[in-house]
């Protein structure tokens, strides 16, 4: 398999959250952080914690959650301009968003919702992605989401859908391994088979996180250490491309610094185990 050499990111990263700010500032061997773009819409200047990280050579990736590129509407140009402006301020190596829709007829869902994976949806998504890339003027990585609902009318496996999206737009993929794991648990598909269909040579970086079972259902809650299934996928992908970057997401049940540092070390160990 051809491996891309001009990846926008490398090494290990973490999703920056205010509750983790102090711990993140003390983490060593960090290559990048990912911030929720919409939380910093109105920043005219870099917040101090980010200045310190940039001074240490740690890159910052704005991660959008409400653009809704797979929505039926054309992307909101004001929204895109704000995202582009934030990316410029951060000198971001890339911007990431989701393959999802978040609103319809002016009503917000407050969540990332799935679309049917077929040629019609793909045509709309491709057009929207090209518009976004024109405005952003930097690499755009699009993420797979997890959802219990499967819209009727899907005719393509998710990997093929992303492959065609990448081929026709030149975008990158943010492959969320925990989302894949959650989908695999819900739909009972083979994870390795599913992963192999994604355009692995165009993965900008990976998301890893941990979830748990509630009432017999698996939820990607991002509040637990990364589980074995996700670690196995991380290891397999690093074997294919040792340069693939990963980003840990933790959204609640906040760990103390020692726990967080140990979790990052564990992930790096898994990632590097292939190289030994």
């Amino acid at each position: 398999m051809a491996v891309a050499t001009n990846l926008p990111l490398s090494g290990s990263g973490i999703g920056w959250r205010p509750e983790l700010s102090a711990s993140i500032a003390c983490l060593s061997s960090l290559s990048f952080i990912e911030i929720i773009a919409e939380s910093f819409w109105h920043c005219q200047q870099l917040p101090d914690p980010f200045k310190c990280l940039l001074n240490r050579g740690i890159e910052i990736v704005p991660h959008g959650i409400s653009l809704g590129l797979a929505g039926a509407d054309y992307p909101d140009l004001d929204h895109l301009k704000r995202l582009a402006s934030l990316a410029r301020l951060l000198e971001a190596p890339c911007v990431s968003e989701h393959v999802a829709f978040v609103r319809a007829n002016g009503i917000e869902s407050g969540h990332l919702l799935p679309v049917p994976r077929n040629k019609g949806t793909l045509a709309v998504l491709i057009e929207n992605t090209k518009i976004a890339m024109d405005v952003l003027q930097r690499p755009l990585a699009l993420e797979n989401i997890a959802s219990r609902i499967e819209p009727p009318g899907s005719t393509m496996p998710e990997g093929d859908f992303f492959q065609e999206l990448v081929d026709r737009t030149g975008c990158w993929v943010l492959l969320d391994l925990e989302n894949l794991h959650a989908q695999g648990r819900t739909r009972q598909f083979n994870l390795n088979e599913q992963i192999s269909k994604f355009p692995l040579q165009r993965i900008a970086y990976l998301h890893v996180a941990g979830g748990g079972e509630h009432h017999g259902e698996y939820h990607d809650t991002h509040d637990q250490p990364v589980g074995e299934a996700t670690l196995a996928m991380l290891k397999a992908l690093q074997k294919i491309n040792p340069s693939i970057a990963f980003c840990l997401e933790r959204d609640s049940n906040w760990p103390c610094f020692q726990e967080l540092a140990a979790e990052m070390d564990r992930l790096r160990y898994y990632a590097m185990a292939n190289l030994v």
Binding site: G71, N105, V115, P116, V124, P151
Partner: peptide, 8 residues
């Protein structure tokens, strides 16, 4: 697509 998404 808009009709489908609105219904969902």
């Amino acid at each position: 697509l808009a009709q489908e998404q609105q219904a969902l």
